[in-house]
Amino acid sequence: MTPFRLDGKAALVTGAGRGIGAAIATRLAEAGAQVLLANRSMGVAQELAASLALRGLAARAAPFDATEDGCRAAVGATLQAFGRLDILVHNAGGCPWSPLETLTGDVLEQTLALNLKSCFWLTQAALPALRRDGGRIVITSSVTGPRVAMRDATHYAAAKAGVNGFIRSAALELAPHRITVNGVEPGFVAKDRGRLSEPARKERLVRYIPLGTAGAPDDIAFAMLYFASDQARWVTGQTIVVDGGMTLPESGRVMEETWDDA
């Protein structure tokens, strides 16, 4: 049984259909929280909510889009379902890959809206509920942008660097209300689809992770669970890197030398 209990709490998790978001929603529910799974694809979120309900856990599904109105609707759905909101987890994110030279305004706006702007709209909408007893805001950031760079992802890197700035500034502004704001920066977490799921590309990436494996969604979810818990009541404005040590070497050469020495 997890030591980080969330009994009597209600949580909203965006991007909760698959992968990291599904793991976060599951771990929060297992810790005793009532969880609203907000996801662009309702079918996937409904399936997960139903599977959690079969285990006796409290979960509902609702649609999510990253507009101002969409964020307010997700918060409203949580309050309607559970009558309260104590934990806001903004996990929805991502971007279409695009070289900087051919990046379009639509792709840039889509990326900023999903990853960064929605932090503002979700927080604004949730504040009246979070102020009641002091609340938790936890955001999925990334090592890409704040710590490392990746080709064809300049727009994503800029958005996630902005997320880290949001976390620090919002934490300071909301501290008088006993609301904490923290984030998790995932490294390479294995996926079953997308460009980084290609076996050859995945194998190359894993070679540069000191702990020798890709991450799993639960690796991120358990860090989120800590930030959502009462045990993290005195932690705010922080991000934790969960990346298997990927950002530790100064270059690929350092890792290659490690292999040679092993």
Rank of each mutant, 00 (worst) to 15 (best):
F4E: 10
Y208V: 14
V107Y: 08
L172P: 03
A232R: 10
L225K: 15
L57A: 03
S197D: 08
A81H: 08
Q34V: 01
Y156W: 03
P96Q: 11
P217A: 05
A153G: 06
A92Y: 08
A23R: 06
E185V: 09
L6H: 01
A23E: 07
S169P: 00
R27P: 00
F166R: 02
D69L: 15
K9T: 14
D133V: 08
N182C: 08
W97N: 12
R195D: 07
A126P: 00
F4R: 06
T213R: 13
G194F: 03
A223I: 07
A113H: 06
R27M: 14
K202N: 03
W121F: 12
E257T: 15
R151L: 13
S251M: 05
V254E: 14
A33I: 09
G244S: 11
E250D: 10
R168E: 14
T144H: 07
A59T: 10
R168S: 11
R193C: 02
L28D: 02
Q46T: 14
A161L: 15
P128M: 14
A221S: 14
A214F: 02
L12N: 03
A16D: 04
V35Q: 08
T123Q: 09
V241D: 14
G94C: 11
K160G: 00
Q34E: 10
P176A: 09
R207C: 02
V143Y: 10
I20D: 01
R193P: 00
E203N: 10
A61T: 04
A125D: 01
Q238Y: 09
A10G: 12
A161R: 15
V148Y: 00
R193F: 05
V206L: 08
T78G: 06
W121K: 03
A29N: 05
F166E: 02
D243R: 07
L12Y: 01
G105I: 05
F222A: 04
P3M: 13
W259T: 13
G8A: 01
L88H: 04
R55I: 01
P63V: 09
A59W: 13
A129C: 00
L79T: 07
D219N: 10
Y208K: 11
V163Y: 08
A129K: 00
L88G: 07
G15A: 06
L6W: 01
S118M: 13
G94P: 06
R18N: 12
T123K: 03
Y226P: 03
D65A: 12
F222P: 00
F222M: 05
L205Y: 05
L100H: 13
L196Y: 05
D243A: 12
A38S: 09
A23I: 05
P63N: 01
